[in-house]
């Protein structure tokens, strides 16, 4: 019983890191330009399909195709910004919501049309296997995903806080006009934020493909979890998303363990509602 409990905690922690990685792009884009990308989870789906087809067609392991997926999603993010987001950057909130929702529906429709609703999974990857620590089994793909998520989130944080480009990005988020007077092109910064934001979800998708099914609706649940993580951590807060990702991962597995797996997602949502009702700006968000 105790071993099982520790096992549960460990798997919650591992998936929590991945949730944080999925959410970090969402929170970055929101923090910069006050736009919620409702299609965030569906970019994850696109990344997962890309990884899957790299394996199915070329026998390329998801781990090796990861750089290509990341680059592809980076480009997709920039394309999305110039094509769809730039025209509505000053539009009413409703227009912004509908555009990103439109992207969500489009990507799901496209995936359903091209690849049908079948669940697909890569049977054997270079990461398959378990590590045995006492009573606790840790899946190597899950461990790799968690490690990848920590590294990737660390890189994003380092980029935002320590590099000139990252600081320029934060400056635009802080005050667009003042940043412009300093010679920062806000348009390019927004595009960069979309590129990085979508690229991080690409990394998450590539890591996830090693141990999770791919299907057209796969983004729905992960997307919703990303919103919960972002809202819980505070919109725009990267460190908040990191903390919230772990909390959500733990709440999910613990409620699944103690109450029943069918209710685990419900408790995550209840926790989220509880937090935003008491603290609308989230745990680490600015008012």
């Amino acid at each position: 019983m105790e071993g099982l409990f520790i096992q549960t905690l460990v798997s919650g922690l591992l998936i929590g890191f991945l949730y944080a990685l999925i959410a970090v792009g969402l929170t970055m884009i929101f923090g910069m330009m006050d736009i919620v990308n409702f299609a965030h989870g569906d970019y994850l789906m696109v990344a997962m399909y890309f990884s899957f087809w790299c394996f199915a067609l070329f026998g390329m392991d998801p781990l090796y195709s990861l750089p290509a997926v990341t680059l592809l999603l980076f480009g997709l993010g920039i394309l999305t910004y110039y094509l769809l987001i730039k025209p509505i950057i000053n539009a009413p909130m409703l227009s912004q919501i509908f555009v990103t929702f439109g992207v969500l529906i489009f990507l799901r429709g496209l995936a359903t049309f091209l690849w049908k609703v079948d669940y697909r999974m890569i049977p054997q990857t270079v990461l398959s296997g378990n590590i045995h620590l006492g009573d606790v089994y840790i899946g190597i793909p899950q461990l790799t995903a968690a490690a990848g998520a920590i590294i990737c989130n660390g890189l994003v944080l380092w980029f935002l806080k320590k590099t000139r480009l990252g600081m320029a990005l934060e400056a635009v988020a802080e005050d667009k006009e003042a940043a412009r007077l300093m010679g920062i092109n806000s348009d390019r910064m927004f595009a960069l934020a979309w590129g990085i934001g979508i690229a991080t979800v690409g990394v998450a998708g590539a890591l996830l493909t090693s141990f999770y099914y791919v299907f057209p609706e796969v983004g729905a649940n992960f997307g919703l979890i990303a919103f919960v993580v972002v809202a819980l951590g505070g919109f725009g807060s990267v460190t908040g998303a990191f903390a919230a990702g772990i909390i959500v991962g733990l709440v999910e597995v613990l409620s699944g363990f103690l109450i029943g797996p069918q209710f685990k997602f419900m408790f995550v949502l209840v926790l989220y509602l509880g937090v935003v009702f008491i603290r609308p700006q989230g745990l680490l968000g600015k008012k």
Partner: peptide, 11 residues
């Protein structure tokens, strides 16, 4: 054509 209806109306 499953999914095409979604693509059309999302556009």
């Amino acid at each position: 054509g499953q999914g095409v209806d979604l693509m059309i109306y999302s556009m």
